[in-house]
C-alpha cells in the first residue's frame, strides 16, 4: 500500500436490505481500495455480495437499504452525497456496465439517442456535438458501420454489439472509474473474449480504475491486476492474480480453483465444494465458510477471522494464518 491516494477506498462497508420480513446483511464489513489505473476483480459465487459491494459505489440500491462504513471515490465521500451530487457523480466519474445489455438499455430509444442523452446530461454541448461524440465512441468500441448502428434500437442488435454499445455509453463522459457487473456472463464464449480484450484495451487507454465483478476465476485472471475473493458478504482473500492463482491461501479460494472445469480434464469427476453458501438472514456465528471447510477446527465456528496481511500485498481471513 505505497500509493497515498487510492482512486476508490472502501472502509468497513456493510449493506443491509430491509425488504421482506428479516433484514438481509448482503455485505458485512468489506474494505477494499483500488489505485488509479488498476483493475480489481471481485470474485465470488451468487449471493456473495460482490455485486452489492460494487453497486454501493453508485448507491444504486432500492429504497430502505442501510449502508454503513465509508466510501471515497476520486476524493469524494460517496456516502455523504446529496441526490443531485450523486447524479453528477454517476457518469463522468463513476460509470457502470451491466450484466445483461439487452435489459439494461431502453428498448424504445435508439442507441445513438441514449448515448447523446448521457453526454447532454453532464455537459453543455449541442445535440450535433453529442451525436458526433457518440459516433466516435462507437468507432472506439469497434462497432462496424457505426453511423447506421447508432440509429438502431436495442432489439435490432446482437448481444455482443449491445455490450459494446453499453461500454461506449459508460465511457461517454470520460469517467475515472468503471464498474463492470459480470459484463461477459450473458454472452457467447467467443464474444466473451472479445469483450474482455476490449475492456482491457480501453482501461489502459483511458487509465481507468476498474472493479470487475465475476464468478469466473478464468475471467478474473484474464482482466485483473488483483483479485478479491468474497464469501457470504466478506472478503476472505485478496492478492495479486499470480498469488491467488498459484498460491491460494484461504480454503475457499483453494476450493474455487479446484472446482474449475479445465482442471477436471483427465479426472472422471468434477471436484466441487461440498454444501451451500449460508443463509444471509441467519449467518453462522464464526467464520461463514467453516460449515463447508475441510480444515475447520473448533475455534472457526465461534470466532470471525480478521483479514490480515499476508505475503507482499495479499490479505487473508483465515484462522490458519492469524
Amino acid at each position: 500500500m505505497t500509493d497515498p491516494a487510492p482512486m476508490i477506498d472502501i472502509r468497513n462497508l456493510s449493506v443491509t436490505f430491509n425488504r421482506g420480513r428479516k433484514p438481509v446483511k448482503a455485505v458485512n464489513g468489506v474494505s477494499l481500495s483500488v489505485r488509479p489505473g488498476e483493475v480489481v476483480a471481485l470474485l465470488g459465487e451468487s449471493g456473495s455480495g460482490k455485486s452489492v459491494t460494487m453497486r454501493s459505489l453508485l448507491r444504486l440500491h432500492p429504497a430502505g437499504t442501510t449502508i454503513e462504513g465509508t466510501m471515497t471515490v476520486a476524493g469524494r465521500d460517496v456516502t455523504g452525497l446529496s441526490k443531485r451530487e450523486l447524479g453528477d457523480l454517476r457518469g463522468p466519474i463513476v460509470s457502470m456496465v451491466f450484466q445483461e445489455p439487452r435489459l439494461a438499455l431502453d428498448p424504445v430509444y435508439t442507441l445513438g439517442r441514449q448515448i447523446e442523452e448521457t453526454i447532454m446530461r453532464h455537459e453543455k454541448v449541442s445535440r450535433a456535438e453529442a451525436s458526433a461524440r457518440a459516433l466516435a465512441l462507437f468507432r472506439k468500441v469497434r462497432i462496424p458501420s457505426p453511423e447506421r448502428r447508432l440509429k438502431n434500437y436495442p432489439h435490432e442488435m446482437s448481444g455482443g454489439m449491445l455490450q459494446r454499445s453499453m461500454i461506449a455509453m459508460a465511457l461517454a463522459c470520460n469517467p475515472k472509474v468503471l464498474l463492470a457487473d459480470e459484463p461477459t456472463t450473458a454472452l457467447d464464449a467467443t464474444v466473451q473474449i472479445q469483450i474482455l480484450l476490449l475492456i482491457r484495451d480501453l482501461q489502459r487507454e483511458y487509465g481507468l480504475s476498474v472493479i470487475f465483478v465475476t464468478h469466473d476465476i478464468g475471467v478474473a485472471a484474464e482482466v485483473a491486476d488483483r483479485i478479491a475473493v468474497m464469501y457470504a458478504g466478506r472478503i476472505v482473500e485478496e492478492g495479486t492474480v499470480s498469488e491467488i492463482i498459484h498460491a491460494p491461501k484461504h480454503p475457499y479460494t483453494q476450493g474455487l480453483l479446484g472446482a474449475r472445469v479445465e482442471l477436471a480434464h483427465g479426472r472422471d469427476r468434477l471436484i466441487t465444494i461440498p454444501g451451500a453458501p449460508p443463509d444471509l438472514t441467519n449467518m453462522p456465528s464464526g467464520c461463514a465458510f467453516s460449515p463447508r471447510c475441510p480444515v475447520a477446527s473448533e475455534p472457526c465456528h465461534t470466532r470471525v477471522p480478521e483479514l490480515v496481511s499476508q505475503g507482499e500485498a495479499g490479505r487473508v481471513a483465515c484462522i490458519q494464518y492469524a
Partner: peptide, 27 residues
C-alpha cells in the same frame, strides 16, 4: 426493469428517467 436502474447509473435525474418510463408505457 434493469434499464431504469441503468438510466440512474448514468446520472439521469428522476424527471429524465420518468420520461423514459412514460415513453415505454405510452404504446
Amino acid at each position: 426493469q434493469d434499464f431504469t436502474q441503468a438510466l440512474a447509473a448514468k446520472g439521469l435525474l428522476t424527471g429524465q428517467i420518468m420520461r423514459h418510463v412514460i415513453r415505454n408505457a405510452a404504446p
